[in-house]
Design a protein around this nucleic acid. Structure first.
Length: 286
DNA sequence: AAAACTACCTGAGTGC
DNA sequence: TGCACTCAGGTAGTTT
């Protein structure tokens, strides 16, 4: 289940195979993803890709970059201000393979590359998307209303505190809301709240300023650490070169219902917030 | 306006 | 062994 670090890892993994190459043809085996694969994707032929690699933190558009990331969208610039927007949803992955490698059941979109290799979009649950647009990205319906990137300056302590103080909903739902900040999925939300000693169900506006500042710092820490480690893998994330991305970092609470808290040995509790499992230590998190 | 809830999907796991 | 069932989760879109 790709979280932001997995998306970042994917961008870094596919970039060397895209840079300076072109998409010769696209083969769509199942275009029925979250949204139908854009008609324009079917027509792509001999399309040049960017000539420079993305910066280490790939969530910035540099001139002629072959791929970058915004939130969990993988964005591949094409000529004439066109872009591919690829989202991995819950179970998606992009892999670089040889043409002759046997297709898997859920390889839905095949990009043939001028290098002779292929980039394959694989997604068992089909929650992801492969879209084409010629709109300015900042106007695109899926990107226009996104909050700041968690690891960039726009996500400042002051911004986060001000935004939180006007919200009545549970703090966990607040930090998972893309309008607040992008890229904080269920796992990292649980972990950041644990590190901050904040109960996930506490109303955002009720969290004190110092504790919000601490949470802000921990959101960044947890994401950055995971990116550094190449992405947490729980189930089906495959790195783009095909190696399973097993970098499971130490998770303090996620998936540990009934097990002892690593700090105080109380039993980790599981509740449901916003229809999602939420794990926390009832003693350490108030 | 904001919060709460739904739909989308398949594979893994459980219980009978 | 097989069938029925539940659960997992990102997030746009809908309802309250």
């Amino acid at each position: 289940m790709p979280e932001l670090p997995e998306v970042e890892t994917t961008c870094q993994g596919i970039a060397p195979h895209l840079v300076g190459n072109s998409i010769t043809t696209v083969e769509i085996r199942n275009g029925n993803l979250r949204w139908p694969v854009s008609d324009e994707v079917y027509q792509l032929k001999n399309i040049a890709l960017g000539k420079s690699l993305p910066p280490a933190a790939g969530n910035r558009a540099e001139p002629d970059t072959c791929v970058f990331r915004r939130a969990k969208y993988i964005i591949i610039p094409l000529p004439k201000s066109q872009h591919l927007l690829i989202h991995l949803g819950m179970s998606g992955s992009l892999r670089i393979t040889a043409q002759e490698e046997e297709l898997k059941k859920h390889d839905h979109v095949i990009f043939n590359l001028s290098s002779g290799l292929q980039m394959r979009y694989h997604d068992p649950r089909r929650f992801g998307s492969v879209l084409w647009t010629d709109q300015d990205l900042e106007d695109h319906r899926l990107l226009a209303k996104l909050g700041p990137e968690p690891l960039q300056d726009g996500f400042s302590t002051e911004y986060f505190i001000a935004k939180s103080k006007e919200k009545t909903k549970a703090i966990k739902l607040h930090i998972m809301d893309n309008h607040t900040v992008v890229g904080v999925g269920n796992i990292y939300a649980c972990e950041a709240l644990f590190l901050s000693g904040i109960s996930p169900k506490l109303a955002a506006e009720k969290v004190s300023r110092p504790r919000l500042a601490k949470l802000h710092k921990n959101i960044r820490t947890v994401l950055q650490r995971s990116i550094d480690q190449g992405g947490t893998t729980l189930k089906d994330f495959i790195q783009s070169d095909g190696q399973p991305g097993y970098f499971k970092q130490q998770l303090n609470v996620y998936g540990r219902e009934g097990e002892p808290c690593l700090t105080c040995e109380s039993k980790i509790k599981r509740i449901v917030l916003g229809q999602r499992s939420t794990f926390y230590c009832p003693k350490c998190q108030k």
